[in-house]
Nucleic acid binder design. Structure first.
Lengths: 190, 190
DNA sequence: AGCTAAAAGTGACCTAAATCACTTTTCCAT
DNA sequence: ATGGAAAAGTGATTTAGGTCACTTTTAGCT
């Protein structure tokens, strides 16, 4: 477990620097969790008590429409943060599902603990500020890609940006992420 | 100008509390700017020196594709923040345009000053952290709406969510924001 | 008020992608 | 290794929305 906490520490220290005391304090506010493939991290209607940092593994965050169709909001793997941010932030029941595409391990941070370490250790507030900002920028890029690009060029763009992801994820899920039917995706390229 | 700075102070204090000394320090890191309708705040290829808080007015942030078509990333009005966040953060040339749909006034914050006030005043880091997080959540909602809803229901949703905005913005720009042609938008509803 | 330009509406036609139905391939679990 | 399920591929058909061309309405000027 020490080694795993060290990965998280490295993750913070890519952005901000921390003293050993600060790190010990921060670390003590995380919980460990482990799930197998197909298990749920978050389900609609249930409380969302944590934000999760992924130690290793792969999850998908998605919502299901009235026709039962799945729409993928995000794939998240090692080093990513994932949650139902809306529900977590507002402490409301979940609006999306998050489940594991591979066996996965997480460090879990509650809202209360997040606010606590942000207020106690300014570097943590800065860390999350910068992380959120990067996340915001990424989503803006994705929106632009949805507005400006055809499904096929979104696919090429993704192949280029996250080639490793494509290896690990069935194409029908990639299709759902891109906002295209699996049949159409299957007719692209190659 | 005092009164306008006060609006900004109120904006901060919706999220965090600040002492008078802290506020004076923060305030001194903003510059004032005023633009007329049709003037540009940000242009592609030019450096993006600031993040802007809108005192009053209305702007659109958009990119132009290879066919010369405009795609609207964001409308921003009083109390909103706007910039080319990517270019600003990475100090690279702008990738989008931002121009005024109405005469507008801004408080401008440089990257250097932002980092300075975030490091000096932890409440500011927390303010931007929370703001970014809200922004992230909003963009996730928009992505979901692009993935799951028809153009028509996206329009209804927007009408419902930001009725005032529709009043102030030509429908062809709303169409561009929704990712639909203006002819198609015109055929919706009533 | 009157002129111009931008915005909005509308019809006809076209196309990218969805949907449906079915086959083939790949991946696991026993 | 093998049987069953999930994933992927493919053809036929449908459809939402795009594009083009034109008219009507509205909003700003001077």
């Amino acid at each position: 477990m020490h080694a795993k906490y060290n990965l998280l520490k490295q993750h913070f220290e890519e952005i901000v620097s921390l003293t050993n005391e600060e790190w010990d304090f921060i670390q003590s506010h995380f919980e460990y969790k482990s799930l197998k493939k197909h298990q749920f991290l978050i389900q609609t209607g249930q409380s969302v008590d944590f934000e999760y940092w992924i130690i290793n593994g792969l999850v998908k965050a998605y919502s299901i429409d009235d026709k039962g169709k799945e729409h993928i909001l995000q794939f998240a793997m090692e080093n990513y943060w994932v949650s139902d941010h809306y529900a977590f932030q507002h402490q409301e029941p979940g609006t999306i599902f998050v489940d594991c595409l591979e066996d996965s391990e997480f460090f879990c941070l509650s809202l209360e603990n997040r606010e606590k370490i942000c207020l106690e250790v300014p570097a943590v507030a800065n860390f999350f500020r910068i992380k959120s900002n990067h996340g915001y920028i990424n989503l803006q890029q994705r929106i632009l890609s949805l507005l400006t690009m055809t499904a096929e060029s979104r696919y090429e763009y993704l192949l280029n940006k996250l080639p490793k992801l494509i290896q690990r994820v069935p194409k029908k899920l990639i299709a759902s992420y891109l906002g295209v039917s699996r049949e159409t995706l299957s007719r692209f390229n190659s």
